[in-house]
Design a binder for these strands. Structure first.
Lengths: 196, 196
DNA sequence: CATAAAATATGATGAGCATCATATTATTGA
DNA sequence: TCAATAATATGATGCTCATCATATTTTATG
């Protein structure tokens, strides 16, 4: 029997697991993400999981990359067709938005998983370290395009601040304070990049 | 029988548990910190734990505050007797040092636990939110002393960047890159605060 | 030294977990 | 419709964990 063109059934399931895992991972962290509840949220049972992934560690590695791919796509959508300058502003506003604070599962994995990453299984850890570089690389590129004198350092500094602000905002109980923390950092970053 | 002056025995043990928990918490996160292994590392057995703490949640709340107290003391030691300007520089260098990156259990809990804080049991979460404000408050005070025009925002921006840089540095596999990330942010912060 | 009380240890319970062997159901090609 | 195969479900195993009731050891006082 030759491979039928409709080997796709399980491919779809696999993809669904991955998408759900990528969201749950950000919401719950790797420890609290259980195979059984993950499958359950797709109306599947735990056993079938191992037909799609070798192990939970394997899933973790794939889900990390999947999450970074998702946020990259979001970022592209938010910036495409704009001038470098406008793209920078949009990127900053999108990365450190209040909506991102309140919706962890759609936001950048860096902001929700960075603390756990050093304890990730090794492949997931590597994938995370790769993904972590995507945003600063993008900012650096845009800064270079507008002729910034030190794009590398400026991008690093900007990304560290935006990421830090998001993490602090999420750990802050009062919503108004959290919102202010994000606003202050978006403004501070834009200002020193000459975008205001 | 009147309370003997030497009721202290269990007080000492309690304190040891707390100190060990405060370090392990930062190293492992709350999930991976197990009561049995915590007690084991003090050469005690798991059962005795409940003579000192009502529950693991109770310990978590106390350990969070204990950790913030420890880092506050470190910060005081690093800055005491200095001019506000010199104190600011010392505070920045200590907070975002490479040593802190490599020794999580002695560094600021904000940098190791912020991601988990939203999932902490409620009292621990409140305690964390309190502790989180200590460092920005200190920086703001120092900035006010040197006559900064907007100490509140400047302190917020600085702390977000330093915290973000530490988290990124820890998630970065290459040690040289990690070291550079910290250096870039320490410099960027000092520069815009007029400390260089 | 003897005894009361404090401090700590033992062992059990029940829950949640990743994983896997095996069974069942769904789908496809003849 | 029927058989082959893919997809998913069931149930079990062995682990780690928080918690607690109870037992033992240590300490300090008379």
């Amino acid at each position: 029997m030759v491979k039928p063109a409709t080997l796709r059934k399980s491919e779809v399931t696999r993809r669904n697991i991955l998408a759900e895992a990528s969201a749950s991972l950000r919401r719950l962290g790797l420890e609290r993400l259980s195979v059984a509840s993950l499958m359950g949220s797709l109306n599947l049972t735990h056993g079938g999981f191992y037909a799609h992934f070798k192990s939970k560690d394997d899933l973790a590695a794939e889900a990390v990359t999947y999450a970074f791919d998702e946020i990259s796509a979001t970022m592209v959508k938010a910036t495409e067709g704009r001038s470098p300058r406008e793209a920078l502003i949009a990127a900053i506003d999108q990365y450190a938005s209040l909506e991102s604070r309140n919706c962890v599962e759609k936001s950048c994995p860096s902001t929700s998983l960075a603390n756990d990453a050093p304890r990730f299984p090794s492949l997931a850890r590597e994938r995370f370290a790769e993904g972590l570089e995507r945003f600063p690389a993008r900012i650096e590129r845009l800064l270079r395009e507008i002729g910034h004198e030190d794009p590398r350092r400026a991008a690093r500094s900007a990304v560290s601040e935006l990421l830090g602000a998001m993490i602090v905002a999420r750990a802050t109980l009062d919503t108004d304070s959290a919102s202010d923390i994000l606003l202050v950092s978006r403004d501070a970053v834009k200002k020193r990049l000459g975008l205001l």
